[in-house]
């Protein structure tokens, strides 16, 4: 009665009935479970251990983070980041932008997955625009350029005033503007623009974007230099600082992104603007 396949002769079974029966069957199949008990490692961890044992993770490798500066967990993550970064060197040339590498689409972890807690966003912490986004520590705008070791550049477009807040994380500066008539809202309520400026992109630094399905990446010219316009699903960024240390930037992405590099400084402009408007705004940076 409630059994469409079982009540019919196979010859009369419709394709969609067979398909739904197979889907149901697939969900009831026995699959090997990943057993991680005691000191046992899952296949991903065992693969990493084997790769480390191949000598890529040996002591003194250039990708090793400074042990005094980072906890062990961080060290493991960064060593593995370097894995992909190594592969990036060759590919960077082909992409036409020194130092930028666009890589793997990957499925985001399921929402609510216990193994990968989402960053806990709390916009209102401290009442500062951009707090809770993982941008780092607040810093006075007047100190920002010096702290990031860059010559601070600000957009000079009508309706875009000084940034409301500035943040610093590991030498990466993020400036935050509220949304308004000139800056449409982003995914993050109240925020219209985040402009990140930091050193370390061209030589020997390079970037890596871990692109999720649904994200598109297109070359975009900003004031005569080639950059990328990254739109769609949020993405993550990995880069290597001038000291050769890979840095995993896990902060939340709030909008479509224009990224370009000039004079050893990388700029990342995230906003609710469309591509043309984002490029126009980027070209006003002074």
């Amino acid at each position: 009665m409630s059994d469409p396949i079982g009540r019919r002769l196979p010859e009369t079974m419709a394709d969609d009935e067979l398909a739904s029966g197979l889907l149901d069957l697939g969900r009831m199949l026995a699959f090997p479970s990943i057993e991680v008990e005691g000191a046992a490692l899952d296949p991903a961890a065992r693969a990493r251990v084997r790769l480390d044992a191949d000598g890529r993770g040996g002591a003194g490798g250039w990708w090793r983070p400074r042990p005094t500066a980072l906890r062990l967990r961080r060290a493991v993550v960064l060593a593995a980041v370097a894995v992909v970064v190594v592969a990036a060197i060759a590919a960077a040339i082909g992409l036409g932008l020194p130092g930028i590498r666009i890589v793997p689409a990957s499925s985001p972890p399921p929402v609510g997955s216990s193994s990968s807690p989402a960053p806990t966003a709390s916009r209102s912490i401290g009442g500062l625009l951009g707090s809770g986004l993982g941008l780092g520590d607040p810093i006075a705008l007047t100190d920002a350029g010096r702290a990031a070791d860059i010559s601070l550049a600000l957009p000079a477009a009508p309706g875009v005033e000084s940034p409301a807040t500035a943040w610093l994380l590991d030498g990466r500066l993020s400036l935050v503007w509220p949304s308004g008539p000139a800056l449409p809202p982003t995914r993050e309520p109240g925020i219209g623009l985040i402009l990140a400026e930091f050193r370390g992109s061209i030589n020997p630094g390079y970037f890596e974007k871990v692109i999720e399905p649904g994200t598109t990446v297109e070359p975009a010219e900003v004031g005569g230099v080639t950059g990328y316009w990254i739109s769609g699903t949020p993405h993550e960024l990995v880069f290597v600082d001038p000291g050769g240390q890979p840095v995993f930037d896990s902060r939340r992405i709030v909008g479509d992104t224009l990224i370009w590099a000039r004079g050893g400084v990388t700029y990342r402009l995230e906003s609710g603007l469309d591509r043309a408007a984002a490029i126009a705004l980027a070209e006003t940076l002074r």
Partner: peptide, 13 residues
Amino acid sequence: MAYEDLVRRHQAV
């Protein structure tokens, strides 16, 4: 994104 973390996302499938 670490390689280990990247492949772990796809480990079950």
